[in-house]
Design a protein around this nucleic acid. Structure first.
Length: 340
DNA sequence: GCGACAG
DNA sequence: ATCTTGTCGC
């Protein structure tokens, strides 16, 4: 696959990403006085209950934009729950003032629960996009012609993302140069949907690198590839969008089952879909060195076979937990974000 | 109460 | 990811 014009790719991707905070705001404002919904009701209406945590933290922000409405959102047990200003008594008083009975700190959901109207569920659309994500023909990856390895990571200063791509030689240890891209972010972090938060800034970064004719031969991405509930983590989506081989490198396990009971340093151990589906290898876990007891979770993104993936990642280990290109991108993006 | 979810 | 004081170890 030839590398497409990334300006076009970046623009069309951004158009397909929903405005989740606006969708949540519309739902919360639609709750009538005298009625309540739960955090999970809102998440379900957005399309995935996994978004419950984001819904709760968003509504509980101290100076949040929905402060005038969020008292109508309670826990699934009926408990009134926390309030954005820390004053749980005020939340109960506001509910009582609207005619919503609060007894022993709880609302009777059978009586006061508002049925949110069924609408377009943005997270359902994103899930089906991931499930059917178009995977172009993979360029035959030549390990012996590998010249540059890029490491990608993002840090944040409030709602500004700072993405860095650190370019290393094929030895995986020598830094050649690095590129930086900053962009405001709107899409929240929701487990399983990381790509929709971080792809826009990555693509803008790669647009810049393409203009300088400095795109690496392979990209190590902070996050997962195939090791994902829908087998479509950020590394896979990014690789398929830009036509560059990618590898996903995560510091925490998102899904899957590790069959072996003990990890030996430097040894690649498979992560399978489940005990019942033990032939379905989604990725690998590896302990980079004896100093850390925390392993990494590595999976194929796009356009790389597992053998080449292991060879590339192995040569990038040099005393840190993360492969050097990712380690450098992480440190540099964090440093720049802290100056904003 | 338990499980628990990349960044 | 970020927030955040002290603390442990090389």
């Amino acid at each position: 696959m030839a590398i497409p014009d990334l300006r076009t790719v970046a623009d069309s991707l951004r158009q397909r990403i929903p405005d989740l905070p606006a969708d949540l705001a519309r739902l919360v404002r639609s709750i009538p006085s005298g009625q309540v919904v739960t955090y999970g009701d809102l998440a379900k209406e957005l399309g995935d209950t996994v978004a419950s945590r984001w819904v709760a933290t968003y509504l509980l922000q101290p100076e949040g934009p929905l402060a005038d409405f969020s008292h109508r959102v309670v826990r699934s047990t009926g408990e009134v729950g926390l309030f954005h200003n820390g004053n749980v008594t005020e939340k109960a008083q506001l509910l009582l003032g609207e005619g919503t009975l609060v007894q022993n700190g709880r609302v009777d959901l059978n009586r006061f629960r508002w049925q949110l109207p069924a609408g377009i569920k943005p997270l359902v659309s994103l899930k089906s996009w991931q499930k059917d994500f178009p995977l172009p023909d993979e360029k035959r990856f030549q390990l012996d012609r590998l010249q540059s390895i890029g490491g990608l990571d993002v840090s944040y200063k409030e709602d500004t993302a700072v993405a860095v791509c650190s370019c290393f030689g094929s030895d995986g240890k020598q830094l050649k140069q690095h590129f930086v891209q900053t962009m405001p972010v709107n899409f929240p972090y929701i487990s399983g949907y990381l790509a929709f938060r971080e792809l826009p800034v990555y693509l803008e970064l790669l647009v810049q690198m393409q203009a300088n004719d400095q795109l690496p031969d392979v990209l190590l991405v902070d996050g997962n590839g195939k090791l994902h509930p829908r087998r479509m983590g950020i590394a896979t989506m990014l690789g398929a969008l830009v036509g560059i081989p990618t590898i996903g490198i995560a510091k925490n396990q998102l899904c899957g089952t590790i069959l072996c009971e003990h990890l030996n340093v430097g040894q690649w151990e498979p992560i399978v879909a489940s005990k019942n589906d033990a032939d379905n290898v989604l990725g690998y876990t590896i302990l980079p060195h004896a100093k850390t007891k925390n392993p990494l979770y590595v999976s194929v993104g796009f356009g790389v076979l597992e053998e080449a993936m292991q060879s590339i990642v192995d040569r990038c280990f040099a005393g840190h937990r993360s492969p050097e290109p990712i380690y450098h991108a992480d440190r540099e993006s964090r440093r720049i974000a802290s100056t904003l």
